[in-house]
């Protein structure tokens, strides 16, 4: 790890992001969703928290995970990663530089979307901590997938389950499933549902559960990392 090299990669990736139409449209998705919400809302009634978390989940899966894996897969596909690794930059520098770009874009997309709908419920220390942990979880998923996908096309195969399972979890609530159904019980343990739970309790347990998810994502990323590093 080396600050100057991380900064160089951050600068390069930010410029590249701004010139990449495919990536640039991603942060628009939650913003457009937020705008649609405001048209749907009836009068001054506040949005239910779980609806707000569909925006959060969309941002984290469609912006965070997706940009991260796309940027990494493109370096692989276009063979530019080789040039970086031949230079004094390490794989860690590359990952951190890209994570910073992803973090910046995610922050902007999330802040704008939430301001459009209703940022009030999020202005709370535990909730913000939950959002940060969620960001790390989706970022780590993106890095892990980005490490082994060799082409941009292949990322969409992995992005779908990330989106539907982890990103759009609150929608399961809307499926009208039986309260006791296994699917709903499992869904309740997923990170986004735990983040919603933070709003309904003063307990720290939901944050703990999200932290466990983050550790899990970190471990699987580490496995992918070790595997790519030993590949010839």
């Amino acid at each position: 790890m080396h600050i100057q090299r991380i900064t160089a990669i951050f600068e390069k990736d930010l410029k590249d992001f701004m010139k990449n139409m495919m990536l640039l449209t991603l942060p628009l998705i939650p913003v457009v969703l937020a705008l649609l919400y405001t048209r749907m809302g009836e009068g001054n009634e506040a949005f239910p928290v779980f609806l707000l978390y569909i925006i959060v989940g969309t941002t984290y899966s469609a912006v965070t995970s997706s940009s991260m894996m796309t940027m990494m897969a493109e370096e692989n596909e276009k063979k530019t990663l080789r040039g970086l690794i031949q230079s004094p930059a390490t794989m860690m520098d590359v990952i951190i530089g890209k994570s910073l770009v992803t973090g910046l874009i995610t922050f902007i997309a999330l802040a704008v979307s939430l301001v459009i709908v209703d940022i009030e419920p999020f202005l709370n220390f535990r909730v913000i901590l939950g959002l940060i942990l969620l960001f790390l979880f989706f970022l780590l998923l993106g890095i892990g997938i980005g490490l082994f996908t060799k082409s941009i096309a292949a990322t969409s195969v992995y992005l779908m389950p990330v989106m539907f399972l982890f990103g759009f979890t609150p929608m399961f609530e809307m499926l009208g499933l039986n309260e006791d159904s296994i699917a709903l019980k499992v869904a309740d343990a997923l990170p986004i549902m735990q983040a919603i739970e933070i709003h309904h309790t003063t307990s720290w347990i939901p944050l703990g559960i999200i932290a466990v998810w983050v550790v899990g994502a970190a471990l699987s990323m580490y496995v992918c990392f070790k595997k790519t590093m030993t590949d010839e």
Partner: peptide, 10 residues
């Protein structure tokens, strides 16, 4: 190296 490449958009 053989088939090195550059960042095309930059």
């Amino acid at each position: 190296s053989d088939n090195s490449s550059l960042y095309e958009r930059l």
